[in-house]
């Protein structure tokens, strides 16, 4: 019975069959809905213990805090769905953020300091994609090597000097969209990281669901052989996925660099694990083929909300990481149970 764990036997999400009821049930139990419910429960519980947790300001800070992680998780989700992985992404964000700050303090136009990192990210993504797709080196090996190269290279070049004295119009992440009216509703001003996170996530989700290339990513990750037979160029898809990942890493890097008045010009420790965690907790299967960017965004928000909640309900910070570990496990277990249910209902 344990054979169900094998990737071969797992049915792709799209292939779900059954009556209306089971379809409704399986919608209710999608990872996105579960994550959303967990988020709501967390907010209600912590909010009732300390009403300041649900104050507008904290709410926005929670959304804002992990927005750059959510943006990076978009590309990471695609990479993982295509059955690859990128563990160099934390280092890449550190390097691109430093690049952005360096451009800004050297008198170049501000738009250049926002755009160049994104282009550079796409280039790095193309290199990774080339090594993985055409030279057939496993992605984990390429990015493990790249992680060292980027991390060491950054220190060698910058000597670890912080970037200060950034121009005052550089701070993209601190900007807010102007308040605007939408369908008669008064939408308050939203910080740009939140806006970018939501727009990019929705765009990516639509693209992945409805475009030919987007669907091909699932096909490559789900069953590479079948994808090849149906005329999908696996190499081209892998290149595309890594380039997109580089672009979202670039955007994340700009958000990361522009939120504070200092850029540390080092690689943020453990960032890659946070991004990968967001993607997998969001329902992206590490075995490829399934998951959505919406789930990854919700997971990034959930992790940020947990971070904040632990301070609010006075959990000793000593136990913080243990709690995070338990929560990842619980989410994943819920995911497994859901899938078993689905499978059971398909058979029944």
């Amino acid at each position: 019975m344990t054979a169900t764990a094998s990737p071969v036997t797992r049915p792709p999400v799209q292939a779900r069959s059954g009556g209306f009821l089971s379809r409704a049930l399986s919608f209710l139990f999608t990872q996105e809905v579960i994550l959303f419910l967990v988020l709501v429960v967390l907010i209600v519980l912590v909010g009732s213990a300390n009403p300041r947790y649900v104050a507008e300001r904290n709410f926005i800070n929670i959304l804002n805090g992990n927005a750059y992680i959510a943006v990076a998780a978009i590309g990471m989700s695609m990479v993982i769905i295509s059955r690859n992985i990128d563990i160099s992404i934390g280092s890449l964000i550190g390097v691109l953020g430093t690049l952005s700050g360096t451009i800004a303090i050297n008198g170049y136009p501000i738009w250049a300091s926002w755009l160049v990192p994104i282009v550079a990210g796409a280039l790095v993504g193309a290199v990774i994609g080339f090594l993985v797709a055409y030279l057939r080196i496993p992605a984990i090996v390429v990015t493990l090597g790249l992680l060292s190269i980027l991390k060491g290279g950054l220190i060698t070049i910058t000597g670890g000097a912080w970037i200060t004295d950034l121009p005052s119009d550089y701070f993209l992440a601190q900007m807010k969209s102007p308040a605007f009216s939408f369908l008669g509703l008064n939408v308050p001003e939203i910080p740009s990281p939140i806006l970018l996170m939501i727009i990019l996530t929705i765009l990516a989700a639509i693209w992945m669901r409805y475009s030919t290339t987007g669907r091909a990513i699932y096909a490559v990750g789900g069953n590479a052989e079948a994808a090849r037979l149906s005329g999908i160029s696996e190499k081209r898809i892998i290149m595309t996925v890594f380039i997109i990942n580089g672009i979202t890493a670039g955007i994340a890097a700009v958000l990361w660099a522009t939120q504070l008045s200092i850029i540390q010009s080092t690689v943020p420790a453990g960032l890659e694990l946070q991004i990968i965690t967001s993607a997998v907790v969001g329902g992206v299967s590490i075995l490829g083929g399934i998951g959505t960017t919406v789930g990854a965004m919700l997971a990034a928000i959930l992790l940020s909300a947990i971070n904040s909640a632990l301070v609010f309900i006075n959990i000793s910070p000593y136990w913080f990481r243990a709690v995070v570990g338990v929560l990842i496990l619980v989410t994943v277990l819920a995911d497994r149970l859901r899938r078993q249910r689905n499978r059971a209902s398909e058979r029944g």
């Binding site: 997998v280 913080f320 243990a322 709690v323 995070v324 570990g325």
Partner: peptide, 9 residues
């Protein structure tokens, strides 16, 4: 990945 956080915690 989960137990990485859990055991360290």
């Amino acid at each position: 990945l989960a137990t990485l956080a859990l055991y360290r915690g």
